[in-house]
Amino acid sequence: MARTAIPGRLTWQQATVVETRFDTPQVKSIALTVPGWSGHRAGQHVDVRLTAPDGYQAERSYSIASAPEDGYVVLSVERLDDGEVSPFLVDELRTGDELELRGPVGGYFVWDEPLGGPLFLVAGGSGLAPLRAMMRHHRATRSEVPVRALCSARSLEALLYREELMELAACDPFDISITLTRVQPSAWRGYRRRIDSDLLAEVAWPPADRSLTYICGPTAFVETAAAGLVGLGHDPARIRTERFGGTGVQP
């Protein structure tokens, strides 16, 4: 029986790889064109489906790292050594290859300019991907919402979108803090420890400013950050979280 796509219904689509680039030794950003892409909101994700020659299928969900205003749908995929999907995406996928995906999905971990702020974005490791989409959307819409971002990575080498973060840090509404938890360059002037209550108190907006907070990272990281902020007096209803499990190592 022939199947016709019903408008508005979630269907698997063929995307084509336009470009791939290593952002860190473990994370590759994959730019895709998706025919008939309906557009997305900053922070949404897509499901990717791989099919083996024997018909076995594996699905994974990846945040979209590009803004709605960008030309391509970009996924930043962290290579998990014991993963079923990520080693293929990082090691094998080439420009011109096709990839099956569906989306965009999720209406919770999203930020659109009218939602306002001030914004506090907290990223652990590759949890920076959806927050980068929000920051790019912020710039593309010339938003004046003030943004504070806290990015945690194991080392400078493991920090995603390094150059872009440095450019953002020089822009007026952005205040970017970086903490490197394992290895720091000798002249490092940023933070040097895992996030804790003191670090959050220093970097976050005062609770009275009623900031809108987005936290994304491994589960343990998100729990620590969210509990820390609530402990400091932030309204839990103004904190949105996204946990992508454990990646084997703590960012």
Partner: peptide, 24 residues
């Protein structure tokens, strides 16, 4: 066992229920 959250099944839920369920 690794714990994720409801965002991770947004696609599956939308496939079943026909709309976004993560904000429900």
């Amino acid at each position: 066992m690794t714990r994720y959250d409801g965002n991770a099944i947004a696609g599956t839920l939308e496939d079943i229920f026909g709309g976004d369920l993560t904000t429900a």
